[in-house]
Computed example of a mutant assay.
Amino acid sequence: MAAPVDALLPLSLLEGVRAVDRPIEDPETEFVAELRNKRLGLSDTVLAQIRRYAEAVRRGQRTTTDEVVALARLIDRRPDAEVVFREAGRYLAERAYRTIGGTARRGVRALPRFMARPLAARQARRIARRYLGGRVERAGSALVLEVPRPLTLDGTSDGAGCAFYEAGFGELLRLLVGRADAVAHEQCSARGEGRCRWRIEFP
């Protein structure tokens, strides 16, 4: 039986698809049904799935890793797969950030840095564990996210799914502390290195 994961993971992937497929034209312009269904992210099927996962997130329900892997494979077939994965990672970070209490969010921004950074790292650890199946640790002046089994890489071809974690990690740190340096992907299971590790400077 597939292990359960937070429903925010598949919701984020579908929201990434929808964001990339959303038209850039005038939002008042009406789309005909045929054109809408040619864009996967605007199809009735995807919108119904988004509603289902959004309700599961609202209820605190979980889903299976199989559903996440199936969505990652679907995205991986797109020529803009990396763009979609990055959009999805940023969406997940934004939604996960909202689960942090207001007092903690304000404390990270208002406290002196030597007090705020450990608080931000603690929240990053919690979010990585809950949503990404990963572990965040301090490494000198950096924070490192390590994910033994990135779900967005299962069955994908060239490691584009790594962009989901990279973008999510960077966006989460930006939201927490108001800035984020570039994220370095220093180890990758897609390259046969056993697991994925991302590092971001966190002085």
Results as ranks from 00 to 15, higher is better:
Val144Gln: 10
Phe114Glu: 15
Ala48Cys: 07
Ala142Gln: 07
Ser157Pro: 01
Gly101Ile: 10
Ala110Gly: 05
Pro118Asp: 02
Glu15Ile: 08
Arg52Trp: 03
Gly41Cys: 08
Phe31Leu: 15
Glu201Val: 11
Thr152Ser: 06
Pro4His: 03
Val17Gln: 13
Gly133Arg: 00
Ala167Thr: 03
Asn37Pro: 07
Gly101Asp: 14
Thr156Phe: 05
Arg174Ala: 12
Ala142Leu: 02
Gly41Gln: 07
Phe202Ile: 02
Asp181Glu: 14
Gly161Cys: 07
Glu82Cys: 02
Leu153Asp: 01
Met115Leu: 15
Ala81Thr: 03
Pro203His: 10
Leu151Cys: 08
Phe85Met: 09
Gly192Phe: 00
Arg77Thr: 14
Arg109Thr: 12
Glu28Phe: 07
Phe169Asp: 04
Glu25Tyr: 00
Phe85Glu: 04
Pro4Tyr: 04
Arg109Cys: 04
Arg117Pro: 00
Ala33Cys: 01
Ala167Arg: 04
Gln61Asn: 14
Arg78Gly: 08
Thr156Val: 13
Val84Pro: 09
Arg197Asp: 02
Cys196Met: 10
Ile24Pro: 00
Asp44Phe: 09
Leu145Gln: 03
Cys188Asp: 14
Cys188Arg: 12
Tyr53Gln: 11
Glu201Trp: 06
Asp44Asn: 07
Arg58Asp: 13
Thr99Trp: 10
Leu92Thr: 04
Gln187Leu: 15
Ile100Gly: 10
Phe169Ser: 06
Lys38Cys: 11
Pro79His: 09
Gly89Thr: 09
Leu143Lys: 06
Val20Pro: 03
Ala56Phe: 13
Arg22Phe: 15
Glu28Arg: 11
Val147Phe: 02
Val46Asn: 12
Ala81Tyr: 00
Arg179Val: 04
Leu176Glu: 08
Ala142Trp: 00
Gly107Tyr: 09
Leu35Tyr: 11
Ala163Leu: 01
Ala72Phe: 02
Gly101Met: 09
Arg98Leu: 12
Asp76Val: 06
Gln49Pro: 05
Val17Glu: 15
Arg39Glu: 02
Arg130His: 03
Glu146Ala: 14
Tyr53Ala: 01
Ala19Cys: 08
Ala180Thr: 13
Ile50Thr: 12
Val17Lys: 05
Cys188His: 02
Leu13Tyr: 05
Val20His: 03
Leu35Gln: 12
Leu11Gln: 09
Phe202Ala: 10
Val46Gln: 11
Leu11Asn: 10
Leu8Trp: 08
Asp26Arg: 03
Thr29Leu: 15
Arg106Met: 12
Ala72Gly: 09
